[in-house]
Simulated assay, not measured.
Amino acid sequence: MFKTVVCLLCLSCTACGLTCYSCEGKGCTNTTTCPSGLDHCNIKEVNGVVTKSCMNSALCVAPIPTPCCSTDLCNGATPAASSILLLMASSAIVTLFL
C-alpha cells in the first residue's frame, strides 16, 4: 500500500507538466505551466530584449538551433553570449601582456 501511494505521488508531479519562466525583460520572474506539446523551456536575447517561454522540443534541433532545456524553471538565467565575448577579450589582453 505504501509503495503504491509513493508511486502515485511521484507520477502526479510529472503529470503536472513543465514549469518555465514566461516573460520579457532581464528581471522577469513570471512562471507558467507549459501546455501540452510544449515540453522545453527557452530563453533568447534579440536586440537586448530577453524573452523566456515554453517551446516544442523539435525547435531545439532546427537548422538554427534555439537554446532550450527540459527541467522546471531551467530558463531562469540570462544568455551569456556577451559575457563570453568579454571573457575572451580580457583573456587575450592578459595573455599578450604577461
Results as ranks from 00 to 15, higher is better:
residue 77 A to F: 04
residue 16 C to R: 15
residue 95 T to G: 02
residue 70 S to D: 08
residue 83 S to A: 14
residue 89 A to W: 03
residue 68 C to V: 02
residue 32 T to Y: 02
residue 33 T to D: 00
residue 37 G to T: 09
residue 76 G to S: 06
residue 58 A to L: 14
residue 42 N to A: 00
residue 68 C to E: 01
residue 76 G to F: 03
residue 41 C to G: 02
residue 47 N to W: 00
residue 67 P to D: 01
residue 73 L to M: 03
residue 96 L to D: 00
residue 89 A to H: 05
residue 42 N to E: 01
residue 43 I to C: 02
residue 88 M to S: 08
residue 16 C to Q: 15
residue 38 L to G: 00
residue 42 N to P: 00
residue 31 T to D: 12
residue 71 T to S: 07
residue 82 S to I: 12
residue 21 Y to L: 11
residue 84 I to E: 10
residue 26 K to G: 08
residue 77 A to H: 02
residue 15 A to S: 10
residue 27 G to Q: 10
residue 86 L to M: 12
residue 83 S to E: 14
residue 28 C to A: 13
residue 29 T to W: 11
residue 58 A to S: 15
residue 67 P to T: 03
residue 19 T to M: 12
residue 79 P to R: 04
residue 38 L to R: 11
residue 36 S to P: 04
residue 44 K to V: 11
residue 57 S to I: 10
residue 67 P to C: 05
residue 90 S to V: 15
residue 17 G to M: 06
residue 51 T to S: 13
residue 9 L to M: 14
residue 80 A to E: 10
residue 80 A to D: 10
residue 57 S to V: 07
residue 18 L to P: 07
residue 58 A to D: 15
residue 78 T to H: 02
residue 53 S to C: 06
residue 53 S to T: 12
residue 51 T to K: 12
residue 64 I to N: 07
residue 45 E to I: 06
residue 24 E to H: 14
residue 18 L to D: 05
residue 84 I to T: 11
